[in-house]
Simulated assay, not measured.
Amino acid sequence: MSCLWIHSVFIPGFFLLFGFEGFPVISVESQRSTDNITIRQGDTTVIRCYVDDKVSKVAWLNRSNIIFAGEDKWSLDPRVELVTQGQLEYSLRIQKVDVFDEGPYTCSIQTKQQSKTSQVYLIVQVPAIIYKVSEDITVNEGSNVALTCLANGRPDPAITWRLLNPSAEALDVGEYLEISGVVRSQAGRYECKASNDVSTPDVKYVNVVVNYPPYIKDVRSSETAVGQAGVLHCEASAVPQPEFEWYRDERRLSSSQSLTIQVSGSRTVLVVANVTEEDYGNYTCVATNRLGVHNASVFLYKPGMGRDINSAGCICQSLWLLLLCVSSALLQC
């Protein structure tokens, strides 16, 4: 209301003082509610004001600043220009709209009887942009993790999180994602998305690496005849990747003419090139990293002698577990 009062006092004085001739317009009563135009930052907008055949004087104002008086441009902004269609239109075009263009725009009319105005409020929207996001992090299992994703835009963007595992389920909503006592299944690529429906969402990613000690998840024993090559397999899960060692009783094994140890990532293979009677028995696979150690027993056995041991499904982590496995196998005989 105060803005309209200013116009009702300022505009007639303006016309009287400068006495310019303008275009006739279709005027709107000053009591009419203000219309809104919503435009995206960087786009071009045209604020319409139409004329009729009545002789009137017109001007464009932004707040109390004169942009055009008739055809005379008072604004120094090169992005602003008049749009006229003969004597029928007196509209205002603004190119590359920015946030500082937001506000009220008034098409002011001076008739012989009174001054009238048509006012439009320009709303400038800004696409969501993420300006700060957490860096990739590496933590030990059980630690607390806090991720940050900050964004701005007009209107304020909504921020959502997802862990891009196969299900990609939605997580917390908001700038901060907190994980208490992180576990290995929560490792992966986290997606932060900021959206406010002005443009396509802005998306950033944070990689979370969770360290944990080795766990031997699979071993394969070998039933091999004398003179043949026996192959023992061992696979472990760990972050960082584990280092492997092979033992026979208490003796650490190394590659030689009769033995070959192969390591590929999280897997290791022990190859006995030419099996003899002395080679049959229990072998121990040991996986280590800086967070811990895990071991399991693997068997090289003579055909017809070791099936019961394998069928018992035992992975023995120490000598007493090995004895328990053997005892269980003997009881099944």
Rank of each mutant, 00 (worst) to 15 (best):
V226M: 12
V209F: 09
L331V: 09
W161D: 00
Q241W: 05
V263G: 03
G181S: 11
E245T: 12
V80H: 03
S258W: 02
R189M: 09
Y283M: 06
T45Q: 08
A128G: 01
F244H: 05
N36M: 08
C3Y: 14
D218Q: 13
T224S: 13
Q332E: 14
H294N: 15
K96E: 15
V183K: 14
V206F: 03
M1V: 12
W161Y: 04
D136V: 06
E191W: 05
T276G: 14
R252D: 00
R162L: 07
T260R: 13
G42Y: 08
R251T: 15
G227N: 09
R251S: 13
E245D: 12
F14T: 06
C333F: 10
S115F: 05
R290T: 08
V9E: 11
F100V: 09
S311Q: 13
S108V: 15
G22P: 07
G22A: 01
N282G: 02
L321Q: 14
R189V: 14
L322Y: 12
A187R: 10
F23G: 08
R32W: 09
S318W: 08
I66Q: 04
K132L: 00
K302H: 15
S75A: 13
N152Q: 09
I66Y: 00
G265T: 11
S33K: 05
S167P: 02
N36D: 15
Y205F: 15
A194G: 01
E29F: 06
E278P: 02
V9Q: 10
V239L: 06
G292V: 07
S33N: 05
Y280Q: 06
S108C: 12
G13K: 10
T34Y: 07
R290H: 11
T44F: 03
V326K: 06
V183S: 13
K112R: 13
K54S: 11
L323S: 06
V51E: 12
A59S: 14
H233D: 12
W320E: 14
A187I: 08
N65S: 14
I309A: 07
D53S: 12
G304F: 06
P12C: 01
Q186T: 02
L171K: 10
Y190F: 01
Y215H: 13
M305S: 12
R63I: 03
I47S: 02
D53F: 09
I123Y: 05
I315K: 12
I129H: 04
T106N: 04
I26E: 14
G153D: 01
G153Y: 02
E235R: 11
S91K: 07
W320M: 08
G174E: 01
Y212M: 04
W246I: 09
G227S: 09
G188F: 06
G292M: 07
T200Y: 09
T117R: 06
K217D: 03
L88W: 15
Q41V: 14
N289K: 11
D218W: 10
G70P: 09
Y131C: 00
P24Y: 02
V275D: 07
